[in-house]
Design a protein around this nucleic acid. Structure first.
Lengths: 234, 234
DNA sequence: ATGCGTATAATTGTATACAATTATACGAAA
DNA sequence: TTTCGTATAATTGTATACAATTATACGCAT
């Protein structure tokens, strides 16, 4: 009953100019192409990408709401950027919310999603052994996506997806360590098992720790030099 | 040192057409003027508000990112709405994040903000006794705002402000109970004292409970009939 | 030289025109 | 009657034109 359309929700439609501008700008900001406080001019961006101001402006409004730029009315759009401290904060927030997500997923996950999760674990172990980084990263993303989709909360799903997207660039480099890859897989497996056993508290606690570990690993592999400069500000 | 511009960050600039359209639509969606799945047409909205499609479109893009509408490319904008379950989920998420915010505020709050917070408590007690609902609601908002501003985390501040805004409409009715008002004040006071004593864990736990209580009170005063219909879906 | 005021340029805000896509109506064939 | 295809209308996507605001340059008075 109830015909369900599995409309694949694109983060931003790839086939509209606005969507492409949005994605491009977000990527450029997160990758550091545009420095903090740099002013983004509509015509300049438009010319660079070969589009008019209209889609650029719409993309700007979205970027503002994502917190990546600040728009001062009648003045301009300024890059907010993402600092190492922002990344830290997001991981702390994610730690709590991914925990909640794991808890709710335990209570609401469907048969199909549960199976997909198990499959994800086994595939990950395979690719980890083979050293297939790209597939591993993809499966890692997918694992979290499955959790988001299974928690039965539009709001939480939306929030976590945002955060996930936000730190994706930074995380890419991180998972490219085979050790962390394997450790991460193991943690995923424990979470999956807790969900399967319907032990919500355990799943929550594990997901919690999983995020902390991911962050800890990150600052132990090339991220600490940048974060330490900012730690002093804390 | 370091001239600090106290640029008051408006949620969305009131003086641009786009900002007004955005605020109006958000209010109308949250208040239930537009039903779920209802299609919003750019020209219709524009004519109703006396503006062209341009500001309407930009507002749409923002509403989409806030999750209030879903835009299907080349097709239309459909109201997502906010269900009682969404409200519940947000309160659960807020419970965790307000806790984290209280913890960080304990570690980072400035002298000035600490004093403003104390002042806020005393003023609230006064207005609670007098039965001044509007001032009480305003002070309640401000208390949380002070916390957000004091946690020293742009990301967390941004996220919590979003959530806060999201449930504002619903919450209005809620605080208009003098009992809850006083109870809420007392909880604020305990949080404030914990922050002042630099007991971060205590502050976190109190802020945590404060949110749960606020939600519990809400569903016990006129919200439960609507939520219960949705509880069955859980 | 410095500060101020005005004119000019640059930039953003909004409206409108046009293009592309999607929905609808209607008629012909089965 | 139903189904399909096509023409038409409606709606969104994009570009451009114009208005309003802000930044800049330059001359003048001090």
């Amino acid at each position: 009953m109830g015909t369900e359309y599995d409309v694949k929700k694109e983060v931003s439609d790839k086939y509209s100019l606005r969507g492409r501008v949005f994605s491009k700008l977000r990527e450029d900001i997160l990758s550091g192409k545009y420095k903090e406080q740099e002013e983004l001019r509509e015509v300049a961006i438009g010319e660079e990408l070969g589009v008019s101001r209209t889609p650029v402006r719409e993309a700007f409004r979205q970027l503002e709401l994502e917190g990546l730029i600040q728009i001062i009315p009648n003045k301009g759009a300024y890059v907010t950027g993402i600092t190492p401290k922002d990344v830290r904060d997001i991981y702390m927030m994610r730690s709590l919310l991914e925990g909640l997500c794991a808890r709710w997923a335990t209570e609401n996950i469907s048969e199909e999603k549960m199976e997909e999760m198990e499959e994800n674990i086994y595939l990950s172990e395979f690719h980890a052994q083979k050293g297939h980084y790209e597939q591993l990263a993809e499966l890692d993303n997918r694992f979290h996506e499955i959790m988001y989709e299974s928690c039965n909360s539009k709001m939480l799903e939306h929030t976590l997806r945002d955060f996930h997207q936000y730190v994706l660039q930074v995380r890419k480099k991180n998972l490219a360590s085979i050790q962390r890859g394997k450790a991460s897989n193991h943690e995923h497996k424990l979470i999956m098992e807790a969900i399967k056993e319907k032990d919500a508290s355990k799943a929550e606690q594990l997901a919690n720790t999983h995020m902390i570990n991911a962050y800890q690993n990150m600052i132990n592999h090339g991220f600490e030099n940048t974060i330490e400069d900012h730690e002093k500000k804390l």
